[in-house]
Design a protein around this nucleic acid. Structure first.
Lengths: 231, 231
DNA sequence: CAGTGGTCTAGACCACACC
DNA sequence: GTGTGGTCTAGACCACTGA
């Protein structure tokens, strides 16, 4: 199993510090030549390293050394920007798009809506040190927020709900699973279609259990690890 | 992008119910012929489906349709066997191996041990409906348990600690990340080296914060989803 | 023992990133 | 424009599974 040896050789280079976080690996053709193999086998090795979070791929740009992952405690429901700040990284959220629209089947069910209700949906991109690491798809009941300006939609959902909602709101539940990126989400994250991601789903409700909002966060899996804060 | 279409075609077959959970897909050569492509491209498509948890691979045995994932709330620290039971599935834990030994570097640090301390380590395999879905590697301070018989080591760690430890013990912290299987762990899970897994790390301590035990659970990622119980 | 999956080769063409 | 990564072909051999 040649690709195991290649993986180990590259992993060794990374952990020895010969390759620093954020640096680009040599081209696939050069690496294949270095290890006297073909690109197919080499890419097998690189995919393993990607699965382990040692390196990550940017579509058509190449392979890069991963940074230390962010720590994320879902039950505590932290502010995404605060997580970055506390880790000494520079985080930024940009608004990709937003729209008031009729709730689709999924939204109707998740928010317990009547037929023909409106929702506000907005997509965000979280970048850390300039690299897009998470795409967030938010959906909020249209009648639960006051008038919100576009600039506010580039804040973390939790912050928006706290500041704009008419009632006090808490994280009701969350779910974490492994998934893969579709076409659209992949391009925002400069990733390839089908790249593995960590999917974090969150639901918000008022104190008397009325469902208000939910979000899907698609995280590049090398960029985050989930755990209790005390860890 | 041929492999996207192949993925979608197979996913469609699965969600339509034409292929039931646990069933085996046709051989790669047959599928490749069906979709008029080569095995390399076909396997690309299958890998995507695997990443999405739609199907899973058993080493040299082929590809199978995934079951509904188990729900796992790490902060609640559920009993693995109870999770299965509640989901109407039949779960079983088997003891792979166990050993009293000198703590290695990792154990010394995780348990805050003095040099030359002993630990008890034991590896377990969790099977659901006959399929091995998680390998658990446990490490416990040697001086914290009474005499334990081998049969007890086929119980969930939490249960062992509750029943056998001299003091009362709680889950101190946990961590969840995406990882990949090494040689040994892969073979116990009938998986391939490098298969993506969900890694759940847990640490246990006494009420006065003395670290007592920790475990690494390597889950086939199609078999589990993590979330708050209220979800 | 037949067929399967695991691994690997040695190419090819294209669209895109970057210079 | 050059080189890169993304995708695909058409094979091959081996070790193992399962009948």
């Amino acid at each position: 199993m040649q690709y195991i040896k290649i993986r180990d050789a590259i992993a060794e280079q990374v952990s020895s510090g010969a390759l620093a976080a954020g640096h680009k690996l040599p081209s696939e053709r050069k690496l294949a030549e270095t290890f006297a193999t073909t690109r197919v086998t080499l890419r097998e090795a690189l995919s393993l390293l990607e699965a382990d979070g040692v390196i990550y791929r940017e579509e058509r740009r190449g392979w890069f050394i991963s940074h230390c992952p962010l720590r994320y405690d879902p039950s505590f429901d932290p502010d995404l920007l605060e997580i970055c700040h506390k880790a000494g990284r520079s985080g930024a959220i940009s608004l990709i798009s937003h729209q008031h629209k009729l709730a689709d089947k999924n939204a109707t069910q998740m928010l317990n809506l009547l037929a023909f209700s409106d929702v506000l949906t907005f997509d965000q991109l979280l970048s850390v040190d300039g690299r897009p690491v998470a795409k967030v798809i938010n959906t909020v009941r249209d009648d639960s927020l006051g008038q919100v300006s576009e600039s506010i939609l580039a804040s973390p959902l939790k912050r928006i709900l706290i500041e704009q909602a008419k009632e006090s709101i808490t994280l009701e539940s969350y779910k974490i699973s492994v998934s893969s990126l579709n076409d659209k989400n992949a391009s925002h994250l400069r990733a390839s279609v089908g790249s593995p991601v960590l999917l974090i789903e969150k639901r918000y409700a008022t104190e008397n259990k009325q469902k208000i909002a939910y979000s899907f966060e698609f995280w590049r899996h090398d960029a985050v690890e989930v755990g209790s804060s005390r860890f």
